[in-house]
Structure formats: C-alpha cells, structure tokens
C-alpha cells in the first residue's frame, strides 16, 4: 500500500469514526441501542484480556478454515473433471445450481439435528455455502482459458488432460485464487449465521451471549473484531496473489 492510498484509508476510517461519535454524542440515542465509540473500545480492550475471546476466535477460525479448505479440495478437482469430460458438467452442475439458490439458513436446523451443536455441523454449513458458489466461479475462471488457447490442442495435438494440466491449471490459478478470496469472505458470513443459531464457542455465538446480557458495546466490539479479521485476511490474500502471480 503506498502513502496516498494509506492516507485515503486512514481518512475514511477517521471520517466514519467522527460520524459515529457525532451521532452518539449529539444524537441523544440511548447507550443500549448505539454505544459511544469510547465504550466500545473499552469493551474491546476488556475482551482482549479474557480467555473466552481467544477461544471464540480460535473456534471460528478453525471452522471457517476447515470448511474453506474442504470446499476447495472438492470443487477444484470437480471443475477440472468437467473440462476433461464435458458430460460430467451437467451431472455436477444441475445439483449445484439447485443448492446455490437455497438460503444457507435452511440447512441449520438439519445440521443441528444430524450433528448437534459441535464443530462438524458448522463446518458442513460453511462448506455447503461456499462449495456451491465456488464450483461455478472456478468453472468460469477455467472455461475462459479453454477458449483463449484453442490452438494448443489443434496445433500440438494435445489431449484434453494435457491442455488442462499444461494450460488451464497454471493459467487459471490467479483467477481461481481471486475467486477463492471472495468465497472466503462469504465463508465468514455463513459461519457467523451458523454460530448465531447454536454453538458453544465462536464469534457468532459471542454476539448472542452479549445480546442476552444487553451488552451492546460488546456486540459492537465483536462486530469490529469480525470485520478486522476479514480485512486482514483479505489483504493477506491480495498480497499473496501479487507475490505468486507477478507475471
């Protein structure tokens, strides 16, 4: 990040903070509905010193990361197979399109019924949500390449497997990585939904726990934590993308 964009980001954050402070100090809004920034930051500092905070962050990270890796591990090979065998595309895409348009919350009662409120249910929820989005996104990244390099199989007489391994896999890697980054953001959204509806630990559950005690400042603090985790992981992935695909 160069100095100019850093300054723009900082100014934007300060402007939002000023707006928040302006509304809460001048707006005569009860603290229960919209706490002042100083109270939220105090709650945030208190959170950081509690053992529950670490447990919640770790539990959420573990669930989202496991589900995300699982989604990539299933969707990526499936997409590559559809490029090698075009009949597989219909077999795979019809059920996925069906899943893709279902709100993820409809699976929450089922996963609680089948897996209880432990980690596996949450991982399944996040997996279902991200996997169904990943397959068409990964497919679009690869099919672009397939059309772009149509002379390779024709001139070099390469088989489909060779085109996929030598052209599509390396060529689509930056697009796949970028789409995976977008899906990682969605994975967090699904996780929080799953945790809101039943868990023992996790950032989503922590929000519900704070709501029970009407601790709005804590809810705000957790929202900031979730946002910051998302922002940091996104920036890390953008940085890795630049390093890996500098061509």
């Amino acid at each position: 990040m160069n100095l100019k964009s850093f300054a723009t980001t900082l100014l934007t954050m300060l402007a939002l903070l000023a707006l928040w402070a302006g509304i809460t100090y001048k707006g005569n809004i009860p603290e229960l509905f919209f706490p002042k920034p100083q109270h939220v930051f105090r709650a945030l500092l208190n959170l950081l010193s509690t053992p529950e905070f670490g447990q919640d962050v770790f539990a959420s990270f573990y669930r989202v990361f496991t589900a995300f890796v699982l989604s990539i591990a299933v969707s990526y090979p499936l997409v590559m197979l559809t490029l090698i065998n075009k009949h597989l595309k219909k077999v795979i895409f019809i059920p996925i399109e069906f899943f893709r348009y279902l709100p993820i919350t409809v699976f929450v009662p089922l996963t609680i019924l089948w897996f209880g409120i432990d980690d596996s249910g949450k991982i399944i929820i996040v997996f279902l949500g991200t996997f169904a989005q990943m397959v068409p996104m990964f497919y679009d990244s690869t099919v672009l390449l397939k059309n772009q390099y149509e002379s390779f199989p024709a001139a070099l007489k390469w088989s489909r497997v060779k085109v996929v391994s030598k052209v599509i896999i390396p060529g689509s890697a930056p697009y796949i990585f970028d789409n995976a980054r977008i899906c990682f953001g969605w994975a967090w959204t699904y996780l929080i939904i799953a945790e809101l509806l039943g868990a023992e630990h996790g950032l989503g559950y922590a929000i519900i726990r704070s709501q029970r005690y009407l601790a709005t400042d804590k809810i705000f603090a957790y929202v900031i934590v979730i946002g910051l985790i998302g922002l940091i992981s996104d920036r890390l992935m953008v940085f890795t993308h630049k390093k890996l695909f500098n061509w």
Binding site: S151, F152, A155, P170, F245
Partner: peptide, 16 residues
C-alpha cells in the same frame, strides 16, 4: 495426429 506449425490470429502466448 502430428503437430502443425501455426500462428493463431490472437497469438495465444502463455502469460506465465
């Protein structure tokens, strides 16, 4: 099944 030397219209160079 043998290769053919060819210049495609859109070059098709591998960017990596």
């Amino acid at each position: 099944s043998l290769p053919l030397a060819y210049t495609p219209q859109m070059n098709e160079l591998l960017p990596w």
